[in-house]
Amino acid sequence: MSSQIVLPRLMQIGGGAIQQITSTLHSLNCSRPLIVTDNMMVKLEYAAHIERLLAEHDITADVFSDTVPEPTMASILAGVEKAKSGNYDSIIALGGGSPIDSAKAIAILAKFGGEMRDYKFPRIVNEAGLPVIAIPTTAGTGSEVTRFTIITDETRDEKMLCVGLGFMPMAALVDYELTLSLPPRITADTGIDALTHAMEAYVSKKANPFSDAQALAAMRLIGPNLRQAYHDGKNAAAREAMMLGSTLAGVAFSNASVALVHGMSRPIGAFFHVPHGLSNAMLLPRVTAYSIPAAADRYADCARAIGVADSNDDDSTANQKLLDELVALNRELHVPSPEAFGIDRHKFFELMPTMAEQALASGSPGNNPRVPSAEEIIALYSELW
């Protein structure tokens, strides 16, 4: 059986990749870009740096910096209006997963109109919007190489998964030097997010030989380097490994899909405004324990790739080491429980049936080695507390 593989048309990877922004635009026959980013990227002067690089080649770019963490339908409307009004032929998406996801949505809506809920899964969006050049500044989401975007419908407290070729960036500039200033909390949350992407891609029912190779390579990079990047943000070798690992994990899950962790994570983010990577981190140990019986050999491979088990360990031993590592990693990186995060207990338990319904509707739990019922998801949420 063959598998369809989708990637950006162009990728520039390594220190200084951002310097290739002008040549990348030329390769795509674009000359009038809109930079979509957030206020932090403006404050750190990353957006101004791109403007200067473009100005050296007589290219003028405008900046839309009002994207928000965990983007909503309302938050992208101003960006859509900006993109419609400026005769732009491309979008440069600069930042973490939220600005890049916002840019993907803006690129589609600016060209085709409608509302974001019109494009949510199970619709497959293969129409090409404005070309997007993604420049990630975190090592976690992999959004620069995925055919997905996540936008919250704030009127329904639902994180909408939007899928299709139309959301795949045309180009990605993956420059680890942009991550050297990341604070420990973002490093931890995005790093565990990347690890989750790689693991879920590898155990997904839609896994294929191509995605397997990317997922295993990602885990080999992330496993030994996440703690180092967290404790010493200026460790260039660890940052470079994490950035490449994040991108490879993005390639893996874009071509194999995520599974139960992500399905359960999105409603937690939508209802309680927990950052996406952090809610994934909360869930990863417990969901892994639930899922191992259905794919013991695959999870054992994950343990060996991450580096906590070796070839002499049988699958059972490797999987116990994996679970121990996930718990220890959360402890060392100070990942809170929902209770410790400050979520209201009554509201959390009251909303569990709705969260389970939304998780299943996203389709992601159906990719899990062990596919849960709504009642089992509710039980997992309850144990997570």
Rank of each mutant, 00 (worst) to 15 (best):
G86S: 11
D193P: 12
P224D: 06
S75Y: 08
R123S: 09
P267W: 05
A241S: 14
A188S: 08
I124Q: 08
A229E: 00
D38Y: 04
T190C: 11
N255Y: 11
S181H: 04
M199R: 04
A215P: 08
C162T: 14
I292P: 00
I292M: 07
P285C: 10
F167V: 02
N87S: 14
A374I: 00
T24H: 03
G142Y: 01
A74H: 13
M242L: 14
S246F: 04
A17N: 04
V327Y: 12
T138I: 08
R147L: 09
G277R: 05
G277A: 09
K104W: 07
T149W: 03
D232W: 00
A201I: 07
H197Q: 11
Q12E: 14
K43S: 10
P99D: 06
V335A: 03
I108R: 07
A237I: 12
G363D: 07
V287M: 07
G233C: 09
H334P: 01
I124G: 01
G245R: 03
P71R: 04
M352Y: 00
A379T: 13
Y176N: 10
E357P: 00
E56K: 07
E177S: 15
I13G: 01
T196I: 02
I133Q: 01
H197F: 01
L221W: 04
A340S: 15
E240H: 04
Y290P: 04
R298S: 11
G97S: 09
I76E: 04
A256S: 15
A83S: 12
M355R: 01
D62S: 14
A105C: 14
I76R: 05
A296K: 13
T146S: 14
G15H: 01
G307F: 02
L53C: 08
G140M: 05
S31H: 14
L109R: 03
P69C: 10
L226S: 02
F271P: 00
M264S: 11
I133M: 10
G16F: 09
L28C: 10
M1K: 11
D301A: 15
T149Y: 03
L284V: 12
I292V: 15
P131N: 13
R239I: 07
R286T: 13
T247R: 00
V274M: 12
Y119L: 09
I92Q: 09
M243W: 02
V251G: 03
T190W: 02
A213D: 08
I151V: 12
T247K: 00
S279L: 04
G164R: 10
A83D: 07
D193F: 04
A78P: 14
A201D: 05
A356T: 01
M11W: 03
H273F: 08
A259L: 02
A110L: 07
A78D: 15
A281Q: 10
F210Y: 15
R286V: 03
G79R: 08
I292F: 06
D153H: 06
S246Q: 05
S23K: 13
A303T: 07
A188K: 00
A213N: 11
F348R: 02
A356F: 03
T247S: 13
P353T: 09
A295W: 02
L182H: 03
L333P: 09
R117A: 12
Y299A: 12
A252V: 07
D118Q: 13
D58G: 00
M160T: 01
D175C: 11
R370F: 11
T149S: 13
S65C: 14
M264P: 08
Q20M: 11
